[in-house]
Computed example of a mutant assay.
Amino acid sequence: MNRRRVLLVVGMIVSLSGCVNRLPYDAWYLGLFAPSYMEVWIETADAVDVHDRVFRRAMSGVASINTSKNLKGNPRGWPDSPGAGAGKLVLGADLPRLIYVRWQSLVEPQTYEAYIPIPEATRQAMLKSERTYCAADGKWITDYRDMVIVGLAPGGIARVWVRGACLKPFDVARVEGTVVKLGPDSGRSGGQYALPLKPSSKAYIEKYGIPYGSW
């Protein structure tokens, strides 16, 4: 093999190794939720990893939400310890650099989009293992904060945490999204939103309104 071919092969190996994922687990999870009764339809949640690879529609559909019929749910503010939300594993991705979400806030109704940068300090935290007690099975385990959780609220508010299955979440960012002028489904639905409000959500809004400013 001549010198030129050797350099070419070495260059290809270096290039490929630069995109090798450095995760100590198989994949990280992207989950989304909304405050009680503040129903959301996710048109797309895209992830961009540190190699600038784009994972489109890493999540879409209905966000996790409490719509109990007794209207006892409290949509004001965010929970101290948000759960996993509705989501999926982002298979093949390295650590996240950016999350893009476009969603329909069904209670307003309005369509928003938000670009959520993930800081380097957060990525480093996602690589750090911690010994912790897991109440779910009563065992001490080694856990990672391998879950990126996004809360979506009326007014275009997106709030982000990272957590592990048995590790407490910590706050990453709060982003104010912008209105998508084309409307739901990028204008292809003729202004029609994806889903009607559930009766309990409709009843809550009619009785108490939307608690803007609490998120």
Rank of each mutant, 00 (worst) to 15 (best):
Met1Lys: 01
Met1Leu: 10
Asn2Asp: 15
Asn2Gln: 06
Asn2Arg: 09
Arg5Pro: 00
Arg5Gly: 02
Arg5Ile: 12
Leu8Ala: 15
Val9Glu: 14
Val9Pro: 02
Gly11Arg: 03
Gly18Ala: 15
Val20Cys: 14
Asn21Thr: 05
Arg22Thr: 13
Leu23Val: 04
Tyr25Asn: 04
Trp28Ser: 09
Leu30Cys: 12
Tyr37His: 01
Trp41Phe: 15
Asp46Asn: 14
Ala47Asp: 02
Ala47Tyr: 06
Val48Phe: 04
Val48Arg: 08
Val50Gln: 06
Asp52Gln: 08
Asp52Leu: 05
Arg53Asp: 05
Met59Gln: 12
Ala63Val: 00
Ala63Leu: 06
Ser64His: 15
Ser64Glu: 15
Ile65Lys: 01
Ile65Trp: 05
Asn66Gln: 07
Asn66Val: 03
Thr67His: 12
Thr67Ala: 15
Lys69His: 10
Asn70Trp: 08
Gly73Ser: 06
Asn74Leu: 08
Arg76Ile: 06
Trp78Met: 07
Pro79Asp: 08
Pro79Val: 03
Ser81Trp: 13
Ala84Cys: 08
Ala86Phe: 07
Lys88Tyr: 11
Lys88Phe: 13
Lys88Val: 08
Lys88Ser: 13
Leu89Tyr: 14
Leu91Tyr: 13
Gly92Pro: 12
Ala93Phe: 06
Pro96Gln: 05
Pro96Tyr: 03
Arg97Leu: 11
Tyr100Thr: 01
Gln104Gly: 08
Gln104Met: 10
Ser105Trp: 01
Leu106Ser: 03
Pro109Gln: 04
Gln110His: 12
Thr111Asp: 02
Tyr112Asn: 00
Glu113Ala: 10
Tyr115Asp: 03
Ile116Ala: 07
Ile116Arg: 04
Pro117Arg: 02
Ala121Asn: 10
Ala121Leu: 09
Ala125Lys: 11
Ala125Phe: 03
Ala125Cys: 08
Lys128Trp: 09
Arg131Thr: 14
Thr132His: 03
Tyr133Glu: 07
Tyr133His: 12
Cys134Trp: 09
Thr142Ile: 14
Asp146Lys: 04
Met147Asp: 10
Val148Pro: 06
Val148Cys: 13
Val148Met: 14
Ile149Val: 09
Val150Asp: 08
Gly151Ser: 12
Leu152Ser: 01
Pro154Glu: 06
Pro154Tyr: 06
Gly155Met: 01
Gly155Glu: 01
Gly156Val: 01
Gly156Arg: 00
Gly156Thr: 00
Val160Ile: 04
Val162Arg: 01
Val162Phe: 03
Val162His: 05
Val162Ile: 15
Arg163Ser: 11
Ala165His: 13
Ala165Cys: 10
Pro169Leu: 14
Phe170Glu: 04
Val175Ile: 15
Glu176Leu: 11
Gly177Phe: 07
Thr178Ile: 09
Val180Arg: 07
Val180Glu: 05
Val180Gly: 02
Gly183Glu: 02
Pro184Gly: 00
Ser186Cys: 12
Gly187Glu: 06
Gly187Lys: 01
Gln192Glu: 15
Gln192Pro: 05
Tyr193Pro: 05
Ala194Asn: 12
Ser200His: 05
Lys202Phe: 09
Lys202Asn: 13
Tyr204Lys: 00
Ile205Met: 13
Pro211Asn: 14
Pro211Ser: 15
Trp215His: 11
